[in-house]
Design a protein around this nucleic acid. Structure first.
Length: 235
DNA sequence: GACTTCGGCTT
DNA sequence: AAGCCGAAGTC
């Protein structure tokens, strides 16, 4: 480094291992301009937002992230949807439908988004009753049915066989197929950090010790198969 | 050759 | 005006 001021900061909001660095140009036509870059945990020097997106993979939504300041523009947070008219959006109905973006984490985890904490007075119990435990975004009722007809397949377009559900798990709702149930459960696994309980009141799902043991056997067998498959690849 | 900093094309 | 990135410049 030569005649430039440079300061490195562990700005909070960056995940561990990330550094944000800025340097001010001291000479030339662009003297005074500030260059910002980020140092990834793996030592890469990121010097633009596109580059950051690249290094991070497509599974992060940095649309609300301001590269220059290193902060989230809460102004852009709500409006982050909606595209400019004109160009066709091939992901229409997928990316723009919050209920369908299942396996992709929508938040850029490397930059913690600010959260406004609203505290109610101890007395006002009206709304605080709802605020216990992790809150889930409201969803359209039976939104899983939109997944109807979608199936996973391998590279030869051979469809994967669906799974069977234990018969103590039953769908509640109009024309809920087993396939739909599985999609719903899979979605819940992705979206929730809490246990998946299904309907609480009437038809609670009971998992017996026997069920657990059977499942353990299955897992063990699957692991053996996997182990064999891998070792046969190595030979 | 690696790394820093600036210019200038592009949006 | 800002962003991005090639490349000049420095070590």
């Amino acid at each position: 480094m030569y005649g430039v001021e440079k300061r490195r900061s562990d700005v909070q909001g960056l995940p561990p291992g990330w550094k944000r660095e800025e340097s001010i140009r001291k000479s030339g036509l662009s003297a005074g301009k500030t260059d910002v870059y980020y140092l990834s945990p793996s030592g890469d020097k990121i010097r633009s937002k596109p580059q950051l997106v690249r290094s991070l993979g497509e599974n992060f939504d940095l649309s609300c992230f301001d590269f220059r300041t290193g902060k989230i523009l809460q102004s852009a947070i709500r409006k982050s949807k909606r595209h400019t008219a004109g160009s066709y959006d091939y992901a229409r109905g997928i990316r723009h439908d919050a209920n369908l973006v299942l396996p992709i984490r929508q938040t850029a985890s490397i930059f913690k988004q600010p959260v406004t904490v609203v505290r109610n007075r101890p007395e006002s119990r009206t709304k605080s009753d709802l605020k216990h435990g992790p809150q889930e975004q409201p969803k359209q009722l039976f939104w899983e049915k939109r997944l109807h007809g979608l199936q996973a397949c391998d590279i030869t377009e051979e469809k994967f066989k669906s799974l069977d559900l234990p018969n103590n798990i039953q769908g509640v709702g109009p024309e809920l197929s087993t396939e739909n149930m599985l999609q719903s459960i899979a979605a819940a696994l992705h979206l929730n950090s809490q246990p998946i309980t299904g309907q609480h009141a009437s038809k609670a799902v009971v998992v017996t010790e026997n069920d657990i043991q059977k499942q353990e056997v299955k897992v063990t067998e699957a692991r053996k198969k996997l182990e064999q498959a891998i070792s046969s690849l190595i030979d």
